[in-house]
Simulated scan of single mutants.
Amino acid sequence: MDEPEAGKLELDLCTCASILHKDFWLEALDDEHRYGFHLRAFHKAWKHEMADGSNNSGSNNASFFYWLDHGAGRSLELPECSQHELRHTHVEYCSAEQRKSYELRFVPGDGALGGVGVEYAVSGEVVHTDERSKWIFVVDLTGRMYLGRKRKGRFHHSSFVSGEPIVAAGKIIIKHGVIVAIEPHSGHFKPRLENLTALCVLLTSHGVDVESVAFIKPKKWSCGWPFPPQPELELEDFAGASDTDYGADKSDSEEPPAPLLPELEEQEHV
């Protein structure tokens, strides 16, 4: 993908960045990038031990990660997460070289494509999202767009940019190079209206007719919605008549936002 043009688009990209949601800061801080929901469960147990003085690691000031890997947390089994799940579920965080294989570019369409087509920047392969997976995307701070299959606990929106801030994120359906539908939902980044607006500006700058794209309002969207009222649609409604597996992975649903993780900036020993 070419660098975004100077002017309004550049300004939008610089002013609407979203950082990783605090629920996943532990995941980003962890050298092994274990799944954020699992780490939050153990973080809650660690807080309880610190509060009641039952810490057996030798110091009431032991950091969370020391407690988890060398202290009492190493053998602790929780109802919501076993040691096996914790130790064997790692979220991929791509290096700059690795993320190149996920990068997209926009090219003039012809024939059946018409308008503007989407292809992988490295291979030149026309993008076609199948129905076997949920496909997720992010736009980084330079305006580059990345696409990949979501794998719960393995590959999430944070994977593309290694937990760095993003401009836009969500789920998407692309058929034979044509963007069909977008849902601006990401548990890791919690997109807002300004992120959706910047995405539309970016797509328009590349020649995409955003009026031909179906934008699906996430169920927990709390901001204003800039598109006309629509029936209760879900992204899988646009996956095609032959779709049987799309949506079987319910991992996009929000897990209970219980107070498992306090404001980490107030924690000195995480």
Rank of each mutant, 00 (worst) to 15 (best):
Pro4Ile: 08
Ala6Asp: 11
Asp12Glu: 13
Leu13Trp: 04
Cys16His: 07
Ala17Thr: 14
Ser18Cys: 12
Ile19Trp: 10
His21Ile: 06
Lys22Phe: 12
Asp23Ser: 14
Leu26Cys: 07
Leu26His: 01
Ala28Gly: 01
Leu29Ala: 14
Asp31Val: 15
Arg34Pro: 05
Tyr35Thr: 05
Ala41Leu: 13
His43Gly: 09
Lys44Val: 02
Lys44Ser: 15
Asp52Cys: 09
Asp52Gly: 09
Ser54Arg: 11
Asn55Gln: 09
Gly58Thr: 08
Asn60Ala: 11
Phe64Cys: 06
Trp67Lys: 03
Ala72Tyr: 02
Ala72Val: 01
Ser75His: 11
Leu76Asn: 02
Leu78Asn: 05
Glu80Asp: 15
His90Ser: 15
His90Gly: 02
Val91Gln: 00
Glu92Leu: 13
Tyr93His: 14
Glu97Ile: 14
Arg99Gln: 09
Glu103Ser: 05
Arg105Pro: 00
Asp110Gln: 13
Gly115Gln: 11
Val127Ser: 01
Val127Ala: 08
Asp130Cys: 11
Phe137Ser: 03
Val139Glu: 03
Val139Arg: 02
Thr142Trp: 04
Tyr146Gln: 01
Leu147Glu: 04
Gly148Trp: 01
Arg149His: 11
Lys150Met: 15
Lys150Asp: 12
Lys150Thr: 12
Arg151Asn: 13
Lys152Arg: 14
Phe155Arg: 00
Phe155His: 01
His156Lys: 06
Gly163His: 09
Ile166Lys: 03
Ile166Gln: 06
Val167Phe: 01
Ala168Asp: 07
Ala168Val: 05
Gly170Asn: 02
Lys171Cys: 13
Ile172Phe: 02
Ile173Lys: 01
Ala181His: 04
Arg192Gly: 01
Ala198Trp: 00
Leu199Glu: 00
Cys200Phe: 00
Val201Ile: 05
Thr204Arg: 15
His206Glu: 04
His206Cys: 10
Val208Met: 04
Glu211Val: 03
Lys217Thr: 06
Ser222Ile: 15
Cys223Thr: 04
Trp225Gln: 07
Phe227Lys: 11
Pro229Thr: 06
Gln230Asn: 04
Gln230Asp: 08
Glu236Phe: 07
Ala239Phe: 08
Ala241Tyr: 03
Thr244Ile: 10
Thr244Cys: 06
Thr244Glu: 14
Asp245Met: 10
Asp245Ala: 10
Asp252Arg: 12
Glu255Pro: 05
Pro256Tyr: 05
Pro259Ala: 12
Glu265Ile: 13
Glu265Phe: 08
Glu266Cys: 12
Glu268Met: 12
Glu268Asp: 11
